[in-house]
Amino acid sequence: MARPRVWIVEDDRAVADALQVLLSCAGYDASTFTEGRAAIRALSTTSPDLILLDLNLPDIDGLEVCQAARALPDYTPVVMLTARSDPVDRLIGLEVGADVYLTKPFEPRALLAQIKAIFRLVERFGHRDSDGVVPRVAALPLTNGPIVMWEAERRVEVQGRRVELTPKEYELLRLMLRHPGRAFGRETLLRAVWGYDFGGESRTLDVHIQRLRQKIEDDPAQPRWLLTVRGFGYKLVAEQSAEDRDAR
């Protein structure tokens, strides 16, 4: 079986060389691009199985490379690996289309774990090319614990069972799935889902959260995933945090 192809888009030669050695030893076919435009040109003729992307490139912003990858008919996972550590930069990177956003300096084992997790998702939810070797997907689903969301189809499953959500329930869940572990204030959720000019009662949010819990929780009265942040709002517990909590 062919080795998964990983492109490293990184202008720092020392970092790029270290990544190439790390990935090659882990069984990946790694190639390096030191400029963003070169990577975009290569994307016009072929596509890798995953892109490791720095944002501070010498010719263009790495976000443009991510946008070019997202314009491809086949979904190419993107891991942003950058020195930009501001939370706003992270949100922008994820909104542009990154699957994972990691900051430098990075832990090599953590990076490999993230890459392996992405390929597990591709294997689980993708299909194989005509050569039967490389898995490809139209888009990776959003996942957290038992919850899986296919955005292109607006389809949600919980523990393998399809659940029907109203449009507002869907938007609430999608926002939280994109940022597991983040606590959202009530006003933030109302503006994001109902719009900046929403003039209704905040009780509307509580009702939708209750209904959403009934659809995604085993016990809505004692939720495991969709929690209340007292005096602030709500959050979707990240999968690892929930597992650690259950182990205690």
Score class of each variant (00 low, 15 high):
Arg161Gln: 13
Pro87Met: 11
Met149Phe: 05
Thr228Asn: 14
Gln210Met: 06
Arg120Gly: 01
Thr188Gly: 05
Val133Ser: 08
Leu55Lys: 11
Val9Met: 10
Ser85Ala: 14
Glu10Gly: 02
Lys235Leu: 15
Phe125Ala: 01
Val134Arg: 11
Ala14Ser: 08
Thr143Met: 01
Trp194Arg: 13
Glu201Ser: 15
Ala138Gly: 04
Thr103Asp: 05
Met149Asn: 06
Leu43Phe: 09
Pro108Asn: 10
Arg136Val: 14
Leu53Met: 13
Ala238Trp: 05
Leu43Tyr: 02
Gly93Asn: 12
Gly97Glu: 08
Arg84Cys: 07
Gly97His: 12
Ser85His: 10
Glu239Tyr: 03
Gln222Glu: 09
Leu121Ser: 03
Gly160Cys: 09
Ser24Gln: 08
Ala68Met: 02
Ala42Pro: 01
Val21Arg: 13
Ile8Ser: 10
Ala192Ile: 03
Pro223Tyr: 06
Gln159Pro: 00
Glu187Trp: 00
Arg245Ile: 15
Gln240Tyr: 02
Ala247Cys: 05
Thr143Trp: 00
Ser202Gln: 10
Glu107Ala: 05
Ile147Met: 10
Pro141Ala: 10
Ile147Cys: 03
Asp219Lys: 15
Gly126Tyr: 11
Arg13Glu: 11
Val78Tyr: 09
Leu165Cys: 03
Glu151Cys: 03
Leu226Glu: 01
Glu123Cys: 06
Val15Thr: 15
Arg155Asn: 01
Val78Glu: 06
Val96Ser: 09
Gly160Thr: 13
Glu153Asp: 12
Leu81Asn: 06
Glu164Ile: 09
Glu95Tyr: 05
Val237Gly: 00
Val9Tyr: 02
Pro58Asn: 08
Leu72Pro: 00
Ala14Ile: 13
Ala30Leu: 05
Val237Thr: 09
Thr45Tyr: 03
Glu95Phe: 05
Arg191Gln: 12
Ile40Glu: 12
Glu64Leu: 06
Pro58Glu: 08
Arg174Pro: 01
Gly93Ala: 12
Ala139Pro: 02
Leu19Pro: 04
Val9Trp: 04
Gln222Leu: 07
Gly27Trp: 10
Ala83Ile: 07
Met80Phe: 05
Glu169His: 07
Lys168Gly: 01
Glu153Val: 11
Leu112Lys: 14
Arg162Pro: 00
Val122Gln: 10
Ser44Phe: 00
Ser31Gly: 03
Thr103Gln: 08
Pro48Thr: 13
Pro48Cys: 06
Asp246His: 03
Arg203Ala: 13
Gly132Phe: 11
Arg154Glu: 14
Leu94His: 08
Pro105Lys: 09
Glu123Tyr: 08
Cys25Leu: 14
Arg230Ser: 08
Pro105Ala: 00
Leu236Tyr: 07
Lys168Met: 04
Arg224Phe: 06
